[in-house]
Amino acid sequence: MFPSRFDYVAATSVDEAIAAKGDGGDETRILAGGQSLLPMMKIRLANPSKLVDINGIPGLDVLERVNGHLRVGALVRHADMVASDLTFGAVESAAPWISDPLVRNRGTVCGSVSHCDPEGDWNSVLLATGADVVARGPSGERVIPIGDFVVDLFTNALNEDEMVTEIRIPVPSGRSGGAYLKLERKVGDYATVAVAAHLELGGGGVITKAGLALTSVAPHNLKVTDAEAALVGEMPSEALFAEAGELAAAASSPRDDVRGTAEWKRQVVRTFARRALATAAASAG
């Protein structure tokens, strides 16, 4: 319950935060919600030499729809997402299932995205909806598609002197629906298996865009491109979603662990992908 000693910087601007992070090297960490980082520090699994606290930076709590995107600033808490009426589809569906209510009051969406924990929920939602991550460094801002941002287990595409300032989730203009189905052992647990589904429908109800991504069943959140390709251009149906479920199960690479066997997790992927797509289609109206 006592972290190792570290230096602490309370940044008041993004530039200040980037400078402090750049100075400290790879043992410097950005502190936003701290709901993943501080628990690891308490049991000394993480021992950063410096923390750069961004909670005092004005403007990072932006949550708004602009230019066809939902902007989620680096200080938007999970609970803000639950409370907001700007969310939609899989984003809205996932928000209440992030950790537990108290952690949601403190933890941030961008922090969770940056953490790149394959058991984290948001990156599946972002992969399914095709979101971008906005990063700032000394040389300015760059927009990183989520698929490029998520590199591997606990590894993102940020440079040492960069920080995430916001994410941008495209807001569909036509008929759309989404869902996030999560199997967790109890509230507050990471997903055993979770599936994010996002569908956009065109004239006559044909699927024009499909997003399907998986949590906790691969070394990183996994976008199931085969299934997405199979869905586009088709009419929604139980058979189609079952086929997508099979493709999702095939794409996943779960492991045996205390949460269950790989075989069973693949079965949950199969089932949840089918159900999530059906829910997405139904909510698209």
Partner: peptide
Amino acid sequence: ITFDDDGNCIGSNFMDYLIPTAWE
């Protein structure tokens, strides 16, 4: 609480030793 073959305790904190919340 379970153990792996080397005798490492799995269930050594409340992330792994699961206590039901009001929800479950």
